[in-house]
Simulated scan of single mutants.
Amino acid sequence: MISKVATLLLDDVSMFEFGVVCEVFGIDRTVHGVPAFDFRICGVQPGEPVASITPGIRLAAGYGLDSVRGADLVVAPPPGAHSEFPNEVLAAVRDAADAGATVLSLCSGVFLLGEAGLLDGRRCTTHWEYVGELAARFPEATVDPDVLFVDEGPLVTSAGTAAGIDACLHVVRRELGSAVANTIARRMVVPPQRDGGQRQFIEQPVVACTSDNLSETMTWMSENLALPHTVDELAARSSMSTRTFARKFAAETGTTPVKWLTTQRVLYARQLLEGTNLGLEAISRRCGFGSGALLRHHFNRVVGVAPADYRRRFGNSAAERDAARRVVTR
């Protein structure tokens, strides 16, 4: 059960995530049946303005770090992943965790938890841009790059930006029940619980290749995704034996030719789902999957959601663009 909520306010705070915390826990919604939170914004020097990452905005905390130590829930909105955290802040968060508080980080706020020593031996997540750095800096943690948030009991970490809404509502649901979480979500005009993870939002660039022979073959594969390909045929095109081709391909890309080709086909399917009205069977043929069922299988595995759900969220069909143009030109 949470009643006392302390959110940290540090230099270079991200306004969106900080606003999410204030929206979920800082607004009095008792008239709608939501229990009141003793909500406190805490900083190193109460009353002294700190800078946000948004130019021209400075904020001041109303409470000091003593309020962090007495909280049921401590929230760390993101300063930058490369921020240096004051020792007194790290000590206050550690003390709160040792006293039984739940600690919640949003986006790159997880780096503060890592510096405080709270990630060792635990699963966690962050924005997909930072997962590699998080894993490198805190090797004792298990970083999950795909999910919107991770619940490790006393430690909850969220992925980037809007995933902070999911994590905050999850904590409310876990501690106070679905009815309370649903009420807050309705007032915020957001879904009380989203499906899928952050894989659907990740940009996946083509791996650079230093081998001329392989580079030419990979370019040809990308331009001919609808065709069937075998490793033997690709090796011959690269003027290599099958074994040498497979070994060099793995060294360059970190994966096998078949897995790489499947990923490129899924990436192309994403483009077609976003920008065309083509049906699933037509898309599967253009991408080289051969059937809608096979496309659904690989798309779900790579992206984390079904093709139909992805199109619903990210689709910008030709018909929609034409309609938009007509509106603009009137």
Rank of each mutant, 00 (worst) to 15 (best):
66 D>N: 12
79 P>A: 04
76 A>H: 06
64 G>M: 15
63 Y>G: 08
77 P>Y: 01
89 V>E: 07
68 V>Y: 09
93 V>F: 05
80 G>L: 06
89 V>M: 10
92 A>C: 07
78 P>S: 14
80 G>Q: 06
90 L>P: 00
74 V>G: 04
75 V>P: 02
59 L>W: 01
90 L>A: 04
60 A>Y: 06
65 L>S: 09
67 S>V: 03
68 V>N: 10
75 V>K: 00
62 G>N: 07
62 G>T: 09
89 V>F: 06
62 G>K: 06
87 N>A: 15
88 E>P: 00
70 G>K: 04
92 A>N: 09
69 R>T: 14
96 A>I: 05
93 V>H: 03
67 S>D: 15
56 G>D: 06
89 V>W: 03
58 R>F: 10
67 S>L: 10
88 E>M: 02
58 R>Q: 12
98 D>E: 15
73 L>Q: 11
84 E>W: 08
73 L>G: 12
99 A>M: 03
82 H>S: 08
86 P>D: 12
69 R>A: 13
94 R>C: 06
64 G>N: 15
94 R>V: 03
86 P>L: 13
90 L>H: 05
93 V>P: 07
75 V>I: 15
63 Y>D: 13
97 A>Q: 08
88 E>D: 13
87 N>Y: 02
99 A>F: 01
100 G>R: 12
88 E>T: 11
100 G>K: 11
77 P>A: 04
60 A>P: 08
59 L>Y: 02
68 V>K: 03
64 G>Y: 14
82 H>D: 11
62 G>R: 03
54 T>G: 00
59 L>K: 00
81 A>N: 09
58 R>K: 14
68 V>H: 07
67 S>Y: 10
74 V>I: 08
68 V>L: 11
63 Y>S: 15
89 V>S: 09
81 A>G: 15
69 R>K: 15
81 A>F: 12
75 V>H: 01
85 F>Y: 15
97 A>R: 11
84 E>M: 11
83 S>P: 06
56 G>Y: 02
98 D>G: 15
56 G>Q: 04
92 A>D: 08
73 L>A: 12
84 E>K: 11
97 A>V: 01
72 D>M: 09
72 D>N: 15
62 G>Q: 09
90 L>T: 05
61 A>W: 04
62 G>W: 03
82 H>P: 00
83 S>A: 15
85 F>Q: 02
57 I>P: 00
67 S>K: 12
65 L>I: 10
54 T>I: 10
61 A>C: 09
63 Y>E: 14
100 G>H: 11
86 P>M: 14
65 L>W: 08
72 D>R: 09
97 A>E: 02
71 A>Q: 09
